[in-house]
């Protein structure tokens, strides 16, 4: 088939990471370079020690070639992460982290750990944060109903992880619920129904 089975209901982690690589990040070039005129836009000129805002994939390539240093985002600061972790443990809601925090952190820790102060501590804190959030997600499963679930502040990687299970559970619940089932039974009829009733 045109799309492998495992990609038909969600994204592969590598694809989620691919998306995160479009996020902007600040770099400090370590050598001069002309303006880069990409299809996406122009970046540069690179004049050390002036900072440039570039897509993450570009920053990673430059970093690998030792042509820049990456300025880690504020939320990768160890103190900030400690505060977040504490917040995460003490409240029911998910604490506000950037939508693509997991992938960005993963990429940065992979290619630029020397640019991140206390990288190892940051790594551990991020892992703890992730685990705390994961267990919250799991306990949130009991709130699942066939109507909706609001999950603000959850990152896209976290969403992608729960997608298969949650979708399946949601759809099963939907079939079992009479009220929703009456209109959800036949997709042919609801198709036109939805169009007229949503204004």
């Amino acid at each position: 088939m045109a799309l492998p089975k495992n990609l038909r209901h969600g994204f592969a982690p590598a694809e989620i990471e691919f998306l995160a690589e479009n996020e902007p990040i600040t770099v400090i070039p370590s050598q001069r370079m002309e303006t880069l005129q990409l299809i996406n836009g122009s970046y540069g000129p690179f004049r050390p020690p002036l900072k440039n805002l570039v897509p993450l994939w570009l920053a990673r390539t430059l970093k690998r070639k030792h042509k820049c240093n990456i300025v880690p985002p504020e939320w990768m600061d160890v103190d900030y992460l400690k505060a977040k972790l504490e917040q995460e443990m003490s409240q029911i809601e998910f604490s506000a982290m950037p939508f693509r925090y997991m992938e960005i952190a993963h990429i940065l820790l992979g290619c630029a750990s020397d640019d991140i102060p206390q990288a190892e501590t940051a790594r551990t804190l991020l892992k703890d944060l992730r685990e705390a959030r994961q267990s919250k997600v799991r306990s949130g499963l009991k709130d699942l109903d066939p109507h909706y679930l609001q999950i603000d502040n959850l990152g896209v990687m976290e969403i992608n992880e729960i997608r298969p299970f949650f979708s399946r559970a949601f759809n099963e619940l939907r079939v079992l619920t009479p009220a929703g089932g009456a209109m959800g039974g036949d997709s042919q009829t609801t198709m036109s129904g939805a169009q007229s009733s949503m204004g």
Binding site: P146, H147, Y148, L149, Q150, I151, D152, N153, L154, I159, F166, F170, R174, A179, G180, M183, G184, T190, M191, A194, Q195, S197, M198
Partner: peptide, 26 residues
């Protein structure tokens, strides 16, 4: 207003929802 239930959601920027595709199709 969700079609499938009587509940009314207040949707604000950056809220994340998990719901039926038909509800948010438009």
């Amino acid at each position: 207003q969700l079609e499938s239930s009587d509940e009314i959601l207040t949707m604000r920027t950056n809220n994340i929802y998990f719901l039926r595709y038909n509800a948010i199709r438009r």
